[in-house]
């Protein structure tokens, strides 16, 4: 989510609520006989409000799961999640009297802190990364289908060179005809033994492993500059009519590079959720236990 001017109302409201809570806290902390405590009425109000905000924030995932529910637009929920979720942090701190407590409460504060930190980091990632992906990954696909698309690419590359055959000291290759008499018109090109060998070797040793291996970040062809010179070299080795085939291979490798880059970006963009969501879940469970036990021993 891009955090832009449209968030202004949310920011202002959150800030206003925070200020209100802060004033309430200061009044209560300095006026109250025993100082701030989670068990006092204002403390319970802060704790309850914080927990409700956390529940609300967590409800986003339920709302996502049941997207058919017409309970407000997901965008609105997301904004609420961001801002009200953030607001829960100071509220819980006010509940705890600005201390970390010990035992269960310490664990809770720690988890909450991690959840908030990952959440803020995630929001920052979601603010900056999409634009970066858009700019740097031109031929994006659906992340979960990258394997399939990559397979298609490998097949496509295969099909370009599938007709390469050797006879005696020469190689032959069918390439798309320059003059299109019909859609699949091809011409036979004869390659010298050396250039045929080189072409086959380049394909078998470099291109094919690169295309079949997902996330080959260390591969020569993953470096755009080196890949370019690699294909430029290859182009000089083959006769003119074969060049469209090389162009095709290069284009396929370029696309594969985009896929790898997309995988990486996608993982960066989403990995924080692996921390954020389970911890948030744990936070709610332990928070509930804390509430029950605290009220029990009131």
């Amino acid at each position: 989510m891009h955090i832009d001017r449209s968030h202004r109302a949310w920011v202002l409201w959150t800030a206003a609520l925070f200020m209100l809570a802060l004033c309430g806290y200061l009044l209560y902390a300095f006026r109250f006989q025993n100082g701030p405590s989670g068990g006092s009425v204002p403390g319970l109000i802060f704790g309850g409000a914080g927990y409700i905000l956390m529940l609300y924030a967590a409800f986003l995932s339920v709302r996502k799961k049941f997207s058919r529910w017409r309970i407000g637009r997901a965008t609105t929920w997301m904004r609420g999640h961001l801002w009200l979720g953030l607001l829960s942090y100071p509220l819980i701190f006010f509940h705890a009297g600005l201390s970390f407590g010990h035992g269960l409460t310490f664990a809770l504060m720690l988890i909450l802190s991690v959840v908030i930190v990952t959440g803020v980091a995630g929001a920052a990632l979601q603010h900056y990364m999409p634009r970066m992906i858009t700019e740097r990954v031109g031929r994006e696909t659906i992340y979960y289908q990258i394997d399939r698309v990559q397979q298609d690419l490998a097949h496509e590359a295969d099909s370009l060179l599938v007709s390469l055959f050797r006879k005696d000291t020469q190689y032959g290759l069918l390439v798309p005809a320059a003059e299109k008499t019909h859609a699949n018109a091809t011409t036979l090109v004869v390659l010298s033994e050396y250039s045929g060998d080189q072409l086959r070797k380049a394909y078998e040793d470099n291109i094919k492993p690169y295309l079949s291996h997902r996330g080959a970040y260390r591969h020569t062809l993953h470096d755009a500059r080196r890949a370019k010179s690699f294909f430029a070299d290859l182009r000089t080795l083959v006769p003119e009519p074969v060049r469209p085939v090389i162009d095709g291979l290069e284009s396929i490798c370029d696309e594969k590079r985009d896929l790898d880059r997309q995988s990486r970006f996608h993982r960066i963009l989403h990995f924080w959720l692996l921390v954020h969501v389970p911890l948030a879940f744990l936070l709610l469970v332990l928070g509930g236990i804390h509430a029950v036990m605290a009220l029990r021993y009131g």
């Binding site: 031929r139 659906i142 284009s251």
Partner: peptide, 20 residues
């Protein structure tokens, strides 16, 4: 664009498993 590397909306959307 060499060979069939031209991208059309129909080709792009056609390459997926729709139940992914």
């Amino acid at each position: 664009p060499p060979l069939r590397r031209a991208r059309t909306a129909k080709w792009l959307s056609g390459r997926y498993d729709l139940n992914y």
